[in-house]
Amino acid sequence: MQSNNLLRTILGAYTGLFILFLYGPFIVMGILSFQAGPEGGPQFPIIEWSTYWYQHVFGLTPPSRVAPLPIGEALLRSLTLAFATMVVSTVLGTLTAQGFRRNFRGSGFVFYLVVLGMMVPGVLLGLGMALVADQVGIDRTWWGTAFVLHVVYTFPFAFLVMLAIFNRFDKSVEEAAWALGVPPGRTFRKVTFPMIFPGVLSAMLFAFTLSYDEFPRTLFTAGSDVTMPIAIYGTFAVEIHPNIFAFGVLTTLFSFALLSVYGVLMTLSVRRAKTAAVQEEIA
C-alpha cells in the first residue's frame, strides 16, 4: 500500500507537470502580448508592459512598420463560415444518425464513408477539392469549395455525437406518439427534437469550433478571400510580432465566451423542465 500511495503521488505530480507543458506556450504568449510596441519583438525580455499590441489589433495605433493584421473581414468570413457549417453538418449529422437507428443493409459502408470525412488529412482533401474545382472550372471560394469541405470534416463529428445521443434515447416515446396518430415528421419536431436538444447543442458546438479553426482544408480551397486561420498562416512567411499573440489572447477569450453561452444554454434547457413544473405547481 505504501508504494501504491507513492505511485499515486508521483502520477499526480507528473500530471501537474503535463498540464504545465500544455499551458506553457500559452502563458508565454499571454505575457508577451503585453510587450511594448512597436519596437518590442515576440521574445523576452519584456521591454515595458503595455497594451500597445492590443490597440494594434484594433487599428488604434498610429501606422508603423508592422502592418495591421488583416483580420476584420477574415474574422467575419470565418464566423459566417463556421455558422453555416454548423447548421448544415448538424442537420446532416442528425438525419444520418436518425437513419442509423434502424438496422439496414450497407450500414457499415455508410458508417465508414461518413467517418472517413474526419480521418482523411485536411491537406489531401483540400488538394483533391482544388483539383476538382480546377477541372470543373468553378472558382474556389470560402463560401463554396471551402464550405463543402468544412462540412465533410465536421459532419462526422456531429454524426457521432448524435449517434451516441440516439443510443441512449428511449424509442418507446416516439412509438407512443405514432400510436396516438401523430405522423413521424411531426413526432420528430414535437417529441424527439426537444428531447435530444442538448445533444444537438453539443454537435453544433463541435462543428462550429472545428470549422472556425479549420486550416489545412481551407488553404487550397478558400481562393483569394481568406478566412481567419489563413490570414494568420500568412504571417508565418514574414516576421511575427506580438500583435498575433494579443490576437491569440483575444480569440481565446472569445472562445470562452462562446463556451459560456453553450454552458448557459445547456443549463437552461435542463432547468426549463423543472422551472415549468414549479410554475405549474404555483398556478
Binding site: P25, Q43, G248
Partner: peptide, 15 residues
C-alpha cells in the same frame, strides 16, 4: 488550450 487557434498555439512555441 484547444480554444485558441491551432496556428497561434504553434506560433507560441517560438518565444
Amino acid at each position: 488550450p484547444f480554444w485558441t487557434s491551432f496556428l497561434i498555439r504553434v506560433l507560441a512555441w517560438r518565444p
